[in-house]
Design a protein around this nucleic acid. Structure first.
Length: 301
DNA sequence: GCGTCTAATGGTCGGCTAAC
DNA sequence: GTTAGCCGACCATTAGACGC
């Protein structure tokens, strides 16, 4: 459904006031956009898009978010920014749930999500993520301590070393506990810069998508004036092509896992006194092994 | 068969400059 | 201010050899 600018502004204002009829009409008009958003911009699967839809719905249904729309930009531009921020929050929540047990309990004794200080209304998803975390650590625990340390050091930004692993590092490096902790803190600090850069790249992907939408709109308008402005059409087409290529490159990088804050092999190799090639090959085989085990257990359930 | 290592290769990044 | 192109340095991956 395409509403006029005035009608959209009126609808959004009423949603901001918590008007139930307006909220109902809003979801009737924009459900499809919310659902398609993660697939179009972040190339997520339909399953993930469904999960994100529920996440977004829970956060939009009160109408409180709409009060920040002042009509300075087009509603769609504003709305996509809101969805983009929500999607980043959702992905972070998912990632944290997969890596660690949240362990945060509210006054009523319920677990809550880390991003927003409110109860998590999707217990099924929480349970599923916790199960996966448990499984992942179980599989990791079956690997020898040396390999496990290589793996955890490589992803030290997201994982913690247990006592056995720290003891192994002490013996292997002849460093004291404090020195090892200092080293790990140093690595995490460096990696946090990389994580910030990753978030910046996610923002860039969204911004490119919005640019593409604007250019497409411009192209439609210009084509209507053709053949008077053929050069203008050509210019817009070229700009559009360029934006598509930039976005494609970033999406490919993300697909290859370049948006993960992984410790450089050199750091891991130096600390353990092994070669970088050794780290690389060990990590590659470990990842294959872990994936195989996780897939096998999924199939056997 | 598995693990480790090395050398070669390909890919990426950062700095610089020029053009728009 | 942004983008593209170039180049050298650095990093990650891979193939192949070797030992257990």
């Amino acid at each position: 459904m395409n509403l006029s600018k005035d009608k959209t502004l009126d609808l959004v204002t009423r949603c901001g006031e918590g008007d139930e009829a307006a909220l109902k009409l809003f979801f009737e008009s924009y459900s499809e956009d919310i659902y398609n958003f993660p697939m179009k911009i972040f190339h997520l699967s339909e399953d993930d898009a469904g999960d994100f839809f529920l996440y977004a719905f829970e956060r939009l249904k009160t109408g409180a978010r709409f009060s920040s729309f002042k009509g300075k930009s087009s509603f769609r531009t504003w709305f996509y920014s809101v969805l983009r921020n929500m999607l980043i929050d959702w992905q972070r929540t998912k990632r944290e749930l997969k890596m660690t047990n949240l362990g945060k309990i509210n006054k009523e004794g319920k677990e809550y999500a880390t991003i927003e200080d409110e109860p998590d209304l999707r217990p099924d998803l929480v349970e599923e993520a916790q199960e996966l975390t448990k499984h992942f650590h179980q599989v990791l625990g079956e690997i020898g301590v040396e390999k496990r340390v290589i793996f955890k050091l490589s992803y030290i930004y997201y994982l913690n070393l247990d006592e056995e692993e720290i003891q192994f590092l002490i013996e292997k490096t002849n460093l004291g506990v404090d020195e090892i902790k200092k080293k790990i803190l140093g690595l995490r600090s460096e990696l946090s810069k990389r994580e910030e850069e990753n978030i910046r790249m996610e923002d860039k992907i969204t911004s490119l998508y919005l640019n593409i939408l604007e250019l497409k709109e411009k192209q439609t308008v210009t084509v209507k004036k053709a053949p008077l402005l053929p050069q203008e059409i050509d210019k817009t087409s070229q700009a559009l092509k360029k934006k598509y290529e930039q976005r494609k490159k970033l999406l490919e990088k993300r697909k290859k896992g370049h948006f993960l804050a992984r410790t450089p092999y050199r750091e891991v190799a130096d600390l353990l006194g092994i070669t970088e090639g050794n780290v690389s090959v060990t990590l590659l085989r470990l990842i294959e092994k872990i994936q195989k085990k996780l897939k096998f257990s999924e199939l056997s359930e």
